[in-house]
Amino acid sequence: MEKSLTAYKVIIQLSNNEVLVQKATIGQLNNILNAFEKISVEVVMNGLGIDLVLQESPFTNILEVQHQKGIQFTVCRNTLNQKNLTASNFLPFVTIVPSALAHIIIKQHEGWSYIKAGS
């Protein structure tokens, strides 16, 4: 695929903590970054998906590199509340939104494309 000068925007929802799904998602993020010169990418995690960005994540180094390349990682406060977690449980570059689903709805309304990771 040719790199485009158009700025694209994609929001990816991850709600799965299976290692193979996490690895596939990380690979897909790299593929997206390689395919476009200008793209905004946000991974929104809720439910079991939040495990990807916990402090003890086995993918910390690669996630940090992806964040440095512009990928935003966001978790759902509703999920944190259900699991009795706080921001300190997560990698330092993770953002928290009140509701992952509401956040996705807003992003789609703003013209972001939506991808469900692991489907």
Rank of each mutant, 00 (worst) to 15 (best):
T74F: 01
A100Q: 04
I71A: 09
L54R: 15
P98K: 07
D51G: 06
F90R: 05
A24H: 05
I104S: 00
Q72E: 11
H103S: 11
I96F: 01
P58Y: 03
E110C: 06
E56G: 01
V19A: 06
S40H: 07
V41D: 08
S15Q: 13
F59P: 07
A7P: 07
E110Q: 15
T74D: 09
A35P: 01
Q28F: 14
L20W: 00
G70E: 11
I50H: 00
L54Y: 05
I32P: 00
K83W: 04
I104H: 08
K23Y: 05
L54V: 05
V94R: 00
S57P: 02
A117T: 12
F36E: 10
A117N: 11
N31Q: 09
V53C: 10
I96E: 15
E18V: 10
D51T: 13
T25M: 13
S4H: 11
N84K: 15
L33A: 13
E42A: 13
R77F: 02
I106G: 03
I71W: 02
N16I: 12
V21H: 05
A35T: 15
I62P: 00
L63N: 05
S57Q: 03
M1S: 14
K69Q: 15
G118K: 11
I26A: 08
H109Q: 15
Q22P: 02
E110P: 05
V41E: 07
S113V: 02
I26W: 03
G49Y: 05
M1P: 04
S40V: 06
I105Q: 11
F36G: 01
E2T: 10
I106E: 12
H109G: 04
K83R: 15
P98L: 05
P92T: 14
L29W: 01
A102C: 06
T74P: 05
L80A: 09
E37H: 14
D51L: 08
H67P: 04
V21N: 04
I96G: 09
L14N: 03
G49K: 03
E56W: 00
D51M: 07
I50Y: 03
Q66P: 06
Y8V: 04
Q66N: 14
M45T: 04
M1N: 09
G27C: 00
E42Y: 00
N81L: 14
Q108F: 07
E2Q: 10
F36C: 09
A87F: 03
V10P: 00
I12L: 14
V10S: 07
I39Y: 01
A7G: 08
I105S: 13
L52D: 01
G118I: 08
Q68V: 00
Q68C: 05
G49R: 02
K107C: 02
K3P: 00
F59A: 01
R77P: 04
T25K: 02
A117D: 05
S40R: 04
I50F: 05
S113A: 15
G27P: 10
N16L: 12
G49I: 12
V97F: 06
E56L: 07
W112H: 02
S113T: 12
I32T: 13
F90I: 09
T25R: 03
E37N: 15
E18N: 14
K107Y: 01
